[in-house]
């Protein structure tokens, strides 16, 4: 496999150690393969040993797996994350949205469906009759929040666990959107619900 060998002076990725031509033992590959297998085996044995220790309650501070066991363990969600939408209410509880359809227009995923109607108050004039967001299609780009001239739609509920058993279940209606409340950023917790640094 001499064609794999890097010629001296060829461009290497930034930070990568410069590699010279391969030696004979590298080129016959068997030794290198054996070394690779050795590394893998060491890794396996180390992790397996730690897993075993954890089972009997030892060496809890040494990780055996880096994965987060999701429903039991939760990751930290940064405060500025774009999370599930909500529609801001006026003081009287009615939606602040005036149905201008800016969000619907800007939405690259076309997941917002608005039908507007006449508001009895001529100073408000227009209000949404239907305001659905299909979370199954939403790409969480936040354009709707940016586009809103009334600051009526926000993505600060910190809700990221969005799932449903059907496609229709992924559609949020106006009532559900109005029920959303802003929330504090979610902390990382372990399987016992204890706060952890993560």
């Amino acid at each position: 496999m001499e064609n794999v060998a890097r010629k001296p002076g060829t461009v290497t990725p930034a930070g990568a150690p410069k590699r010279g031509p391969l030696s004979f033992w590298e080129r016959i590959y068997v030794v290198e393969a054996a070394r690779g297998v050795w590394i893998t085996t060491v890794h396996f044995c180390r992790n397996m040993w730690r897993h075993t220790l954890h089972l009997v309650g030892l060496a809890k501070d040494k990780q055996a797996a880096v994965t987060v066991q999701y429903p039991e363990e939760l990751r930290y969600v940064p405060p500025r994350s774009r999370t599930r939408h909500r529609i801001v209410r006026r003081e009287d509880g009615s939606p602040r949205c005036v149905g201008c359809m800016m969000c619907e227009t800007i939405c690259p995923a076309r997941c917002i469906y608005i039908v507007a109607e006449e508001d009895p108050d001529p100073n408000i004039e227009k209000r949404p009759k239907r305001f659905d967001i299909d979370l199954g299609m939403c790409v969480f780009c936040g354009f709707c929040v940016e586009a809103c001239p009334e600051d009526a739609i926000r993505m600060d509920t910190q809700m990221v666990d969005l799932a449903a058993y059907s496609r229709n279940g992924m559609i949020l209606t106006l009532d559900q959107l109005l029920a959303g409340e802003p929330a504090a950023p979610r902390e990382a917790t372990n399987a016992l619900g204890e706060r952890v640094h993560g």
Binding site: T40, H43, F44, N47, M48, H51, Q63, A64, A65, V66, T67, Q69
Partner: peptide, 9 residues
């Protein structure tokens, strides 16, 4: 085996 090798569960 692959999971343990790759630091997974």
């Amino acid at each position: 085996q692959s999971a343990v090798i790759q630091d997974r569960w």
